[in-house]
């Protein structure tokens, strides 16, 4: 087979997808909202499903969450992993209940649980994929999360592309220089072991290289008043003062609450359990 440059399902593609996801470069409705409104939206969507077992309500909530995902323009990698996850889950459930003599009732029951988990997953996809690290860390600060956590979020996002790139380079180095197994073994187990070994070995240089990078970063943070700001509150209030809840932000929350109430009303009218 001849090698070709591929644009999809390659390491390069994964890297780009991660960046696009992390920085919300696709735009979308939620990325223009005040981050606090987005987080509150998420909280509503994540908590409400736990308060009901009415399939009608859950179905309506599922549709709301799906609309959220659509409006947020979630990218193919994240969506793909989500769908694969759900797919595996369903497959797995069928298998388990068949093996242990379950019946359709079991499936339906577990299906409802998956419906709930699906709503929450979609809500978190829509919300967190739309928040770039800056907005997310500001919103976390606004909700009184510790400074260290808020910083961890924005720094983690910033480092991610660099670290994935670095890991890729080091891993490639092993692929180039370490001899692959001569035989693939049963189900290619030798190859699997070889890859796992390379992934583990890659961490030695990654630890040392990252430690060196982190040193510079933390020194730079120190000189630019990061620790100072955690003691002195003025920086925090400036950051929080920059956020504005606009009409559309309030509208988003009001519409969501209305839809959720509507969902419960529909559930009252046409209740359906299991």
């Amino acid at each position: 087979m001849l090698r070709k440059q591929r644009d999809v399902l390659s390491v390069e593609w994964i890297k780009l997808e991660l960046i696009r996801t992390a920085y919300a470069t696709r735009g979308g409705m939620f990325s223009r909202r005040d981050p606090r409104a987005v987080l509150v939206w998420y909280l509503i969507m994540a908590f409400v499903p736990w308060f009901t077992h009415n399939v009608t309500v859950l179905a309506v909530l599922f549709v709301i969450a799906a609309i959220g995902v659509f409006l947020a323009r979630v990218g193919p990698l994240v969506l793909g992993l989500f769908i694969i996850g759900i797919g595996f889950e369903i497959f797995y459930l069928i298998l388990v209940s068949l093996m242990f003599g379950g019946n359709l009732g079991t499936l339906a029951a577990l299906g409802v649980v998956n419906l709930k988990l699906g709503i929450i997953s979609m809500a978190s996809m829509a919300a967190f994929v739309s928040l770039d690290p800056e907005k997310l860390s500001d919103a976390l600060l606004a909700f009184k999360m510790p400074e260290l956590f808020a910083f961890g979020v924005s720094y983690g996002y910033r480092m991610l592309p660099i670290m994935v790139e670095e890991f890729n380079t080091v891993f490639d180095g092993f692929r180039l220089r370490m001899a692959p197994p001569e035989k693939r073994g049963f189900l290619g187990w030798r190859t699997v072991v070889h890859w796992a070994k390379m992934a583990i070995l890659s961490f030695y240089p990654i630890f040392l290289n990252t430690a060196k990078n982190v040193r510079t970063t933390v020194e730079a943070l120190e000189t630019r008043g990061f620790t100072y700001a955690t003691v002195d509150g003025r920086g925090r209030s400036i950051r929080l003062g920059q956020m504005r809840m606009g009409t559309v932000d309030w509208l988003l929350l009001v519409v969501t609450v209305a839809l959720v109430v509507g969902a419960f009303a529909a559930g009252q009218a046409w209740p359906l359990y299991r």
Binding site: Y155, G156, A199, F207, R215, V218, T227
Partner: peptide, 23 residues
């Protein structure tokens, strides 16, 4: 304090990377 910060950040970054690879 900065040393604590370094340990914290390094630990976060490395475990995060490990997890994203697994993901």
């Amino acid at each position: 304090t900065p040393q604590k910060l370094m340990v914290f950040v390094l630990s976060m970054a490395l475990f995060g990377l490990a997890n994203i690879i697994l993901e």
